[in-house]
Amino acid sequence: MNWIKNATSDEQKVLVFTETKRGADSLCRELQYQSLPAAAIHGDKEQRQRDKTLFDFRSGRCNVLIATDVAQRGLDIKDVAYVVNYDVPKTLEDYIHRIGRTARGGATGTAVTFFPADAYTPDLIRMARAIGKAMKDVGQKPPQELLDLGGGPGPGRR
Rank of each mutant, 00 (worst) to 15 (best):
M1L: 13
N2V: 12
I4R: 00
A7G: 05
A7Q: 04
T8L: 04
S9R: 13
S9M: 11
D10Y: 14
D10T: 13
E11P: 03
E11G: 07
V16Q: 00
F17Y: 04
F17M: 04
T20L: 13
R22K: 15
R22F: 11
A24S: 13
L27Y: 00
C28W: 02
C28E: 06
E30T: 12
Q32M: 15
Q32E: 14
Q32D: 10
Y33C: 10
Q34F: 08
S35E: 11
P37M: 11
A40D: 01
A40G: 03
A40T: 04
H42Y: 03
H42G: 01
G43S: 08
G43L: 05
D44A: 06
Q49L: 05
R50K: 11
D51R: 10
L54T: 02
F55E: 14
F55D: 14
D56T: 06
R58Q: 13
G60C: 13
C62F: 11
N63E: 09
L65P: 00
L65C: 06
L65H: 02
I66H: 01
I66N: 01
I66L: 06
I66W: 00
A67W: 00
A67H: 01
T68E: 03
V70W: 03
V70N: 04
A71R: 00
R73N: 10
R73T: 12
R73S: 09
R73L: 13
L75V: 15
L75F: 12
L75M: 15
D76K: 06
D76A: 06
D79A: 08
V83N: 01
V84D: 00
N85E: 04
N85K: 02
D87E: 12
P89S: 09
T91H: 08
T91G: 08
L92A: 04
Y95R: 02
R98A: 01
R98G: 02
I99T: 01
I99N: 00
A103W: 01
R104A: 02
G105C: 13
G106Q: 08
G106Y: 09
A107Q: 09
G109N: 03
F115L: 05
P116L: 10
P116S: 14
A117G: 13
A117R: 13
D118A: 13
A119Q: 15
Y120V: 12
Y120T: 10
Y120M: 15
T121A: 08
T121V: 09
L124N: 06
R126K: 15
M127W: 02
R129A: 08
R129Q: 11
A130V: 04
I131D: 00
A134C: 11
M135F: 06
M135Q: 07
G139Q: 10
K141P: 06
P142E: 10
P142V: 08
P142D: 10
P143F: 06
Q144V: 10
Q144M: 12
E145S: 11
E145Y: 09
L146D: 03
L146W: 03
D148S: 07
D148H: 07
D148L: 09
D148W: 03
L149Q: 02
G151V: 06
G152W: 03
P153F: 11
P153R: 12
P153H: 12
R157T: 13
R157N: 13
R158W: 07
R158N: 10
R158A: 11
